[in-house]
Amino acid sequence: NITNLCPFDEVFNATRFASVYAWNRKRISNCVADYSVLYNLAPFFTFKCYGVSPTKLNDLCFTNVYADSFVIRGDEVRQIAPGQTGNIADYNYKLPDDFTGCVIAWNSNKLDSKVSGNYNYLYRLFRKSNLKPFERDISTEIYQAGNKPCNGVAGFNCYFPLRSYSFRPTYGVGHQPYRVVVLSFELLHAPATVCGPKKST
């Protein structure tokens, strides 16, 4: 009989979030998941669920729940959905087409922007091929755009693959930082360890 609440607040209220290319994953298990708490945590810009209804979450049980978190800019949030393409979905964080879970995003301009520009958040701009779903690539190998090998040196047709967002508070919403948490629900042929409040007794 599990009584402890799932530590969603640790994920959502973390002081620092990860850069999207090096997104963070927390496995959540053996706890009571009260998803209604999430609705009250922040004024969400996005709370979209796929393959599951957000209002039914509190009635369900899962084997595992994974919470992935990272920062992107406002106009990239739409890429965090099944079947999307674009720089983020292709080279940084890719959801599977049959994704079961929820994408939660909110504006973090007050936390993640600086007047002089916050350069701490990076994204991958160049990659030889698209990522597979939930693949994480943290390599910093020089990207070869031409025929000549780069031998690890940046220059003509040889690019450092990561680029930094420079978040400034005066930017338009599309270029402001957004914190994203992706909850993916895993149903294996194994005992369910993460249940809503109704199912945990």
Rank of each mutant, 00 (worst) to 15 (best):
K94L: 02
L162V: 12
A81K: 08
Y119G: 09
Y91G: 05
V153G: 11
D75A: 15
A42C: 07
D68K: 04
L95F: 03
N30K: 08
N24R: 14
P169Y: 05
V20W: 02
F160H: 15
Y91E: 01
V153E: 13
R73Y: 00
N24Y: 09
T140C: 08
L60R: 10
D112Y: 03
F70M: 05
C61R: 07
L41V: 13
N109G: 05
G74N: 02
Y93V: 02
Y171L: 00
K26E: 08
C6D: 06
G83Q: 09
F17T: 03
F62A: 11
N13G: 10
N13E: 10
T55S: 15
V180D: 00
S184E: 07
N109H: 06
V37Y: 13
D59A: 11
D137S: 04
A67S: 05
P82S: 03
Y66Q: 09
K128Q: 11
G74K: 05
T55E: 15
L60C: 08
P133W: 05
S29K: 11
I104H: 06
P82T: 04
Y159M: 01
R127A: 06
W23N: 02
S53E: 15
Y39N: 15
L95H: 01
D137W: 04
C49H: 03
K148E: 14
V173H: 12
N157Y: 02
C49Y: 04
V11L: 11
S166N: 06
F70G: 01
N1H: 12
D9W: 11
S113A: 11
N120M: 11
P197V: 15
L41M: 14
L57R: 07
D90W: 08
N151Y: 11
R78G: 11
F70Y: 04
T193P: 12
W106E: 01
P82K: 04
F99D: 00
F44D: 15
R73G: 05
Y171K: 00
A190T: 13
N92E: 00
P133A: 10
G83R: 13
S129A: 12
A192P: 15
N107C: 05
D75F: 08
A145D: 01
F167Q: 00
F156Q: 06
Y121Q: 10
L125T: 06
E10A: 11
R168L: 01
A22T: 08
V182I: 08
V37Q: 13
L41N: 14
E10L: 08
R124Y: 01
Y66V: 14
P177D: 00
D75M: 09
P54W: 15
K94G: 03
S200H: 14
E186W: 11
Q176C: 00
C102M: 05
Y66N: 11
D98R: 09
P197N: 15
A42I: 13
L183D: 00
G51V: 05
A33D: 05
S166L: 04
V77P: 01
N107Y: 01
N58S: 13
P161C: 03
F47S: 09
T55P: 10
A81N: 05
K199F: 14
N58F: 08
L187P: 09
V153Q: 15
A42V: 13
S139K: 09
W23F: 08
V182M: 01
L131K: 02
P149E: 12
G86E: 01
H175F: 12
D9H: 13
V20C: 03
S29R: 12
I88H: 01
N13Q: 10
R27D: 09
T15Q: 12
Y165D: 00
C102D: 02
N151S: 11
Y159S: 00
S164P: 13
S200N: 14
N92C: 03
V20K: 00
F167V: 00
I138K: 10
R136S: 06
S129F: 09
S139F: 05
F126A: 05
Q79I: 03
W106H: 03
T3D: 11
D59T: 13
G155C: 04
C150Q: 00
L38Q: 05
T46H: 15
H189Q: 15
R136Y: 05
I2G: 14
V11W: 08
R124W: 01
E135V: 06
K199L: 12
V173I: 15
V103L: 04
W23A: 03
S184K: 10
F8W: 11
S166R: 05
A190C: 09
Y50H: 07
S108Q: 01
F99R: 02
C61F: 07
A192L: 14
V20P: 07
G83T: 06
V180Y: 01
I142P: 06
Y35H: 08
D97R: 12
L95P: 01
A145W: 02
F156R: 07
I80Q: 01
S36W: 07
N40M: 10
G152E: 10
T3N: 11
Q79H: 05
G51D: 06
L187Y: 12
L131G: 01
P197Q: 15
C6M: 06
Y66C: 08
G74Y: 03
I88R: 02
F12K: 05
F185P: 06
N147Q: 07
K26V: 15
V153A: 14
E141K: 11
L111E: 13
V173Y: 11
V103D: 00
R25C: 00
L162G: 00
A42F: 13
K48W: 06
I138Y: 07
N151A: 11
Y50P: 00
Y121L: 13
L188T: 15
L41Q: 14
R27M: 11
V11R: 04
C158W: 03
N64I: 15
S200D: 14
F126Y: 03
F70C: 00
K148S: 14
E10Y: 07
S113G: 05
V115G: 08
G155I: 03
L38I: 14
T193G: 13
A81D: 04
F134S: 09
Y93S: 01
S69H: 05
D112E: 03
A81W: 09
K26G: 04
A33S: 09
C31V: 06
R78S: 12
S29N: 12
H175D: 02
D98M: 09
V52I: 14
N1V: 10
N109I: 04
F62C: 07
H175Y: 15
V182E: 00
L38Y: 06
N87L: 15
N130F: 09
L38V: 12
G155P: 03
P161V: 03
V173F: 13
T193Y: 13
K132F: 09
S69F: 06
T85N: 12
P149T: 06
Y91F: 13
D68F: 04
G174R: 06
Y143G: 01
G74Q: 04
T15N: 11
Y121M: 10
P96V: 03
P169W: 04
T170V: 02
L38P: 05
F99T: 01
T201A: 14
F45C: 14
Y143F: 13
I142W: 05
W106P: 00
D112K: 02
L41D: 10
L5H: 12
P54G: 10
T15E: 13
D137F: 03
A67W: 09
G146S: 06
H175G: 00
A190W: 10
I88W: 01
N1P: 13
N87V: 15
D68A: 04
T63S: 14
F44H: 15
L57E: 07
C6W: 05
E135R: 05
D98Y: 09
A105P: 01
N151V: 08
F160G: 08
N151K: 14
V103F: 02
R16G: 11
Y21G: 01
T85C: 09
C102F: 04
L183K: 00
L131Y: 03
N120G: 13
N64P: 13
Q84C: 09
V194R: 12
V37G: 12
G146E: 01
F134K: 06
C195K: 08
R27C: 09
V11M: 08
Y123K: 15
P43T: 10
S113L: 01
L183N: 01
T100P: 01
Y50N: 02
N13T: 10
F156L: 07
E76Y: 03
A145P: 02
